[in-house]
Simulated assay, not measured.
Amino acid sequence: MNGHQQVFGVAPDGAWSAPGRVNLIGEHTDYNEGFVLPLALPHSAVATVTRRADRVLRLRSRDVGDAIVELSLDRLVPGEVRGWAGYPAGVAWALERAGHRLAGADIHFASDVPTGAGLSSSAALEVVTALALSELNGLGLTEAELARIGQLAENDFVGMPCGILDQMASASCVDGHVLHLDTRDLSGRQVPFDMAAEGLRLLVVDTRVKHAHADGGYGRRRAECEAGAAALGVPFLRDVPFEKLDAELARIDDEVVRRRVRHVVTEDRRVARVVGLLDAGRPREIGPLLTEGHLSLRDDFEVSCPELDLAVDTANAAGALGSRMTGGGFGGSAIALVPEESVPAVRDAVLAAFAGAGLAAPRIFEAVPSAGARRLAV
């Protein structure tokens, strides 16, 4: 809180927090109106905010530097706010576009969500901004509405064609659970996920790499999925029945589009199978499904990379029950479901493998299912 007053010369009216996320299973299904299973991380973006009497938005990030980005709410234009500030600016723009007239605000951000790691640092910024502005302006937005505003900001203001998984996870996950979310209507169920009680740990391996073609590759994958849905005459790939998948795939002439469709449809099925195992109290059995999902992302969807494959293969060989890349791909992070007693061996093996490949040491930490966006005590 002191940082806010030092920067802006006034005390904040409040403080809010929104977390990053890890997706347990269900990758590249959200923009196909499918199913996902994320959990919120303990890492979060915190915003301290003072309401202003004018229409000026002043933004400052502790993590980027001392500069204050000053903007007018009356002159926000998509694509013109570069870098990290585009995310909170985009949220203000999206709220105004939705018909909410905002007061200006001074906002100070501090985040410990790793950037470029596929852990939704941008969604955390979007959701914490949306929640703070909603409460300060008396908008009363629901979790789903906050997520939609964040997605609109990222899609139409920043220019990244993401689905809604990240924003919904940040807005609505709860401690000790994964969120089984239907991205068609945003209905969901919190599924208990207490790995420690089962003698398990979910490790995150942040490879610390992001390949240059990541953003363009994401957009191409989305277009290929849309082409697949059009070829099959369905609104979204979520509507392709798994039981008839082989026959449906045979109707697609383009081999690349065929593989994209196969990944999405089988990934939706994997989400259902993982949820069934968790509901049955058999969490150890989800490991092979995580690895199966990674192979599908690597081979059919082609969004993995050598560093992610190295993390997954090494973790599995060292004792993990299953591993997969998480997030959009082309770099970022992998997750590994590991028996508690095998954590040191898996950690050491992954670090040694990266060193042996001449790569920088990855960041390895435990993913603990945590709370979603909320107001903090000042």
Rank of each mutant, 00 (worst) to 15 (best):
M160Q: 12
G20I: 01
P241T: 00
M195H: 05
G26S: 06
Y218G: 01
E340I: 06
R375P: 07
A110P: 08
D206W: 11
S61I: 01
A357Y: 04
H108G: 12
L119R: 09
G356I: 09
V234C: 10
L136W: 03
L200G: 02
A247R: 09
T29P: 03
R221D: 02
R82A: 15
A197M: 10
R75C: 05
S304R: 13
G138D: 10
M325E: 03
E248F: 07
D348C: 02
D279M: 04
D253S: 15
L73N: 07
D254N: 13
A130P: 15
V368N: 04
G319F: 00
I164E: 04
A171W: 06
A272K: 05
G159L: 12
V81G: 02
R184G: 04
G86D: 01
L186K: 08
V36K: 08
G331Q: 04
N316I: 12
H294L: 05
L351H: 13
V22L: 06
D166R: 00
I286N: 00
V264M: 12
R258C: 03
N23W: 07
V204Y: 10
L146P: 04
L146A: 13
E226T: 11
A361P: 13
A320V: 10
E224S: 02
R51G: 02
D30P: 00
E27N: 04
G216V: 12
E243M: 07
P114H: 05
E126Q: 14
V338N: 10
V91Q: 03
R269Q: 14
H180R: 13
D74H: 01
R270S: 01
V275I: 11
A336I: 12
R251S: 04
V174W: 02
P88F: 06
